[in-house]
């Protein structure tokens, strides 16, 4: 379970997070909605300890991220897969190497076992046969799927999605949404989805929060509250 407790962060005079609290339970997807530039990505990075916070704490199964030692933080991060908005795939590596990188770094599997694992992941994300392609030759949607694949490499307990559908065509967008739902239902992946897309929020979210001007609030009727808020 991830417990975010009274997280606050400001950049100079700009308050990005103001006493933000919420919980991510077992096989639960929490959606953080909010307009662009409200600090949703900062929130994800703060939860992972990449961005330091001014106050508050995050508990990963009772380990406090903000006071954890380096090796404890690394152990926490191994249990999380992160899908970046810009995918952050390594341009110099092909699809296979991108997905295999965390496996090579953190396990002692043989090359054959790593290849099998990559093939298995490509099957899950529906990208079989694309192993040898480089990110530069993939479309935006395909890159997003490969980024999900890389996030799955260490079979993480949690998946964080940063704007997973932004900039995708409707077909690819639906495919990504289906994949997120599939990973939650069939592989029991918990996680956080930050987005400004109401449609994905309604389709995948168990709990939906609105982040606006640093404050977070739980939503019940999304569209009504978003448009009136």
């Amino acid at each position: 379970m991830i417990e975010v407790k009274k997280l606050s962060k400001r950049f100079d005079d700009l308050i990005v997070l103001d006493d933000v609290s919420f919980t991510v339970g077992e096989a639960q997807l929490v959606v953080i909605l909010g307009p662009s530039g409200t600090g949703k990505t900062v929130l994800l990075k703060a939860i992972l300890g990449i961005v330091p916070v001014d106050s508050g704490e995050v508990l990963f199964d009772n380990t406090v991220v903000q006071s954890a030692k380096e090796n404890e933080i690394y152990n926490i991060r191994k249990r999380i897969g992160f899908v970046f908005q810009g995918t952050a795939l390594f341009d110099s590596m092909n699809v296979c190497d991108n997905i295999a990188l965390p496996i090579k770094e953190h396990t002692r599997l043989s090359n054959k076992q790593i290849r099998d694992k990559v093939e298995e992941i490509l099957k899950i994300i529906g990208m079989t046969g694309k192993e040898r392609l480089y990110p530069g030759s993939l479309s935006g949607g395909m890159k997003r799927l490969i980024a999900v694949g890389r996030a799955l490499a260490l079979d993480p307990q949690y998946l964080f999605y940063d704007e997973p559908t932004t900039g995708l065509d409707p077909i690819m967008r639906d495919r990504v949404i289906e994949l997120i739902i599939d990973l939650k239902k069939n592989y029991r992946k918990s996680g956080i989805v930050v987005t400004h897309d109401l449609d994905i929020a309604e389709k995948v979210g168990d709990d939906i929060y609105l982040l606006k001007k640093g404050k977070i609030s739980k939503l019940k009727k999304i569209r009504k509250e978003m448009y009136n808020g």
Binding site: N75, R77, K78, F84, A88, E105
Partner: peptide, 21 residues
């Protein structure tokens, strides 16, 4: 360019020390 395209953040999130990598 790895820094501006968040590839270094990706390494950190994958628990790979970017200094070593």
């Amino acid at each position: 360019s790895m820094r501006v395209t968040e590839q270094i953040d990706a390494l950190e999130i994958m628990a790979i020390d970017p200094y070593r990598f």
